[in-house]
Amino acid sequence: MAYTRARRVLPGFGLSLGFTLAYLSLIVLIPLSAVFIKAAGAGWERFVETVTSPRVIASFELSFGASLLAAAINVVFGLMLAWGLVRYTFPGKKLVDALIDLPFALPTAVAGISLTAIYAKNGWLGQPLSLFGIEVAFKPLGVLVALVFIGLPFIVRTVQPILEDLDAEFEEAAASLGASRLQTFRRVVFPAIVPALLTGFALAFARAVGEYGSVIFIAGNIPLVSEITPLMIITKLEQYDYEGATAVASVMLIVSFILLLIINGLQAWTARRSGRSA
């Protein structure tokens, strides 16, 4: 430490780090720790009883299942979109590229009521789909649709820069060695973008598990059928069941922390693979 102190030319280290740590602790770390302290205070048995109750288990299954499925769907179609944006020219490309981030910018409640209007029985897509007996709004399928909306930019925006940086040389080498385009994609391009695809998948999944606003309107919120986990926390709070709410919240927080570690690892892997600095 003495060595770095001697080399320090720039001022403001104590002030900036001190303020950063104080603000971080007051706004984020101490409040988050309240969840675990409160959950611990309620005792282990109460905790297990809450998080293994049928309604909460059903909500975990829906939230995690729909989030996994939505992220997987977005990996397939997000890759196509990213590929189109990087490799092809087409009219309106700049506009499409800019609008990909819409789910980041559009308030979730707005997305929620809009998706509900579209997929309701008299909606633009709900009506034609109902002719085939497919109901989306107020069903678990509605949850999936909302999570697909919210997750798309995560995949496109993590894969796009990696595709952009891919050197044409590898594909040229593959082509000159007689590989078909499909072989080249499978053996050369795809392995290079796997870390980015997995990172995007994990980011979309992490966001989807905690998502509330866009889902809540279209889900229908039927107990044991279409209740997501964040809604369980709200329901328990409205019944003044603070211990129950914190028990469910602590499970979600632990999942978030694990996902954060996985995402950090994946991002480091992506950076190493592509030689980019984060």
Partner: peptide, 18 residues
Amino acid sequence: DLPFSVSPVVAGLIYVLI
């Protein structure tokens, strides 16, 4: 980065707990 990975509902809950 933590607040990005925490569900918004949990973000509200922590202030209710305090």
